[in-house]
Simulated assay, not measured.
Amino acid sequence: MTLEILKDKEELRAVIDAYATLGDDKKLTEQMALFTPDTTYNVFMNGHQVVATSGRDQMEKDFAEHIAQVKTYFTLNGQFSVTVDGDTASGVSFSQLKMIRETEGKDVLTDYSVRYEDTFVRQDGKWLIKARIGHFIMIEVREINN
């Protein structure tokens, strides 16, 4: 493995971690800057597709609607593997994503175990997400006391 490949892998991991951190902080504009303008974003829950978004502008609108419903996000990233081929790359990452929403005056925690499949491209020397597929494998919902 060359030093260039190792550098690319480190930069790609930084993109994945930035996605999580910016999402947790609800910094939507900065988070969207991690995607190509023609990005695609798909979500599957229990094997069924529940989200299919094309284009960064549409994705930003969809994410903004979601953010408005969530009080708190917390993401913990785990394993990440990526294959780099010049200015393209593909990878798989795993995350624990927690969201707190208020329902009928009570805080409700939804805990997701997610496997992301990503396609990346390097544009103007910067790695961006070209396509993201989220497989929400386990979902737990419970009321919490804060």
Rank of each mutant, 00 (worst) to 15 (best):
M1Y: 08
M1G: 15
T2C: 07
L6E: 15
K7S: 07
D8N: 11
E11A: 13
L12C: 04
L12A: 03
V15T: 09
V15A: 09
V15G: 08
I16N: 14
D17P: 08
D17Y: 01
A18C: 09
G23S: 12
D24Y: 09
D25K: 15
K26H: 05
T29D: 15
E30K: 12
Q31D: 11
M32D: 04
L34G: 10
F35E: 14
P37T: 02
T40W: 10
Y41I: 10
N42I: 02
N42T: 04
V43L: 11
F44G: 02
F44W: 03
M45K: 00
N46M: 12
H48D: 05
V50H: 01
V51G: 00
T53V: 12
S54T: 12
G55N: 05
Q58A: 04
M59W: 07
M59C: 04
E60H: 08
K61R: 06
D62G: 06
F63I: 14
A64P: 05
E65T: 05
E65Y: 01
H66P: 00
A68Y: 09
Q69G: 04
V70A: 06
V70S: 08
V70K: 07
F74G: 08
F74R: 04
T75N: 13
L76Y: 05
N77D: 00
N77K: 14
N77I: 09
T83I: 07
T83M: 08
V84P: 02
D87W: 00
F94P: 01
F94D: 10
Q96S: 14
K98A: 13
K98V: 01
I100V: 14
R101A: 05
E102M: 13
E102K: 10
T103S: 13
K106M: 06
K106W: 03
V108T: 10
L109D: 07
D111G: 07
Y112N: 14
R115D: 05
V121W: 03
R122C: 00
G125I: 00
W127S: 08
A131G: 02
R132Q: 03
I133E: 06
I139C: 06
I139Y: 05
V141I: 11
R142N: 11
